[in-house]
């Protein structure tokens, strides 16, 4: 289907835009705002609001018509291969299907002392208004923190009967994150037989999400991953997909 934005009449192409320019408010600033709107494809563009802010900044609101057409058939999206669940739904699935709490062990391994990533996913506080896995009543979370050795991680995972192990690698030099991850997955393969090995998940801004096979892990999460995505994945991989097969 071919569409264009809708203001109050089909096909009118009307959009609204607001932005700040780092210049004081005057006639020239308003002209500059209209020039930007024009370059963004708004024609005609109407400057409806301009307000000075502090020294040397102006805030603008512009309404205008764009000529662009959008073809919904040609939209490309990367589909998640599991459904995104709410915390309530995650808890309900675990309660109903697993009938015990799902055990998660997390850590930063190697020399990396940056727990920002693992804390964002695990700590109650979470990230960007979304609570971490500790918030989920049916998840039992052990966060080992930073600079955890691989043997300690394997030992704790065994002791806690971990269903899943989450490893974060934020700051890395000379591909240390890749070496560390390979060492970690190898240690788990050595220590535990296939059926009893926890789900291995790594995350961090420098990973390529397609490298799971090469690194010997089950899933890789990149920049911007939220706790809810991780929780949904855990339920999908450990409960939903297992019972289907």
């Amino acid at each position: 289907m071919i569409v264009r934005p809708y203001g109050d009449t089909t096909g009118d192409g009307m959009v609204q835009l607001s932005f700040t320019l780092p210049i004081p408010h005057d006639k020239r600033a308003e002209g500059a705002a209209l020039q930007l709107a024009g370059k963004m494809g708004m024609d005609p563009a109407m400057l409806v609001h301009a307000k000075p802010m502090g020294d040397g900044f102006t805030f603008f609101v512009v309404y205008g018509k764009v000529g662009h057409l959008v073809d919904t058939e040609r939209v490309q999206v990367v589909e998640r291969d599991y459904p995104l669940l709410s915390a309530k739904e995650v808890n309900a699935v675990i309660k109903r299907r697993l009938r015990r709490r799902l055990n998660v062990v997390g850590a930063c391994i190697g020399t990396d002392a940056h727990t920002v990533g693992i804390d964002a996913i695990l700590n109650l506080k979470g990230i960007a208004g979304e609570k971490g896995l500790e918030y989920y009543s049916e998840l039992s979370v052990t966060n080992l923190g930073a600079q955890v050795s691989v043997p300690d991680l394997v030992e704790t995972a065994r002791e806690k009967k971990a269903d899943a192990v989450l490893v974060s690698q934020v700051v890395t030099q000379r591909d240390a994150h890749l070496h560390n991850t390979r060492a970690m997955s190898a240690a788990f393969r050595e220590a535990l037989p296939a059926g009893r090995r926890p789900l291995l998940i790594v995350g961090g801004p420098r990973f390529d999400e397609l490298m799971t096979g090469e690194l010997g892990v089950d899933r890789i999460f990149g920049r911007g991953t939220t706790p809810r995505e991780v929780a949904s994945y855990l339920v999908h991989a450990l409960i939903e997909s297992k019972s289907k097969s």
Binding site: F19, T20, K51, M53, G54, F59
Partner: peptide, 14 residues
């Protein structure tokens, strides 16, 4: 813009 971005100059002004 809570939960969207760390506040912009214009967010604070509004």
């Amino acid at each position: 813009t809570e939960a969207v971005v760390t506040p912009w100059l214009s967010d604070r002004d509004i």
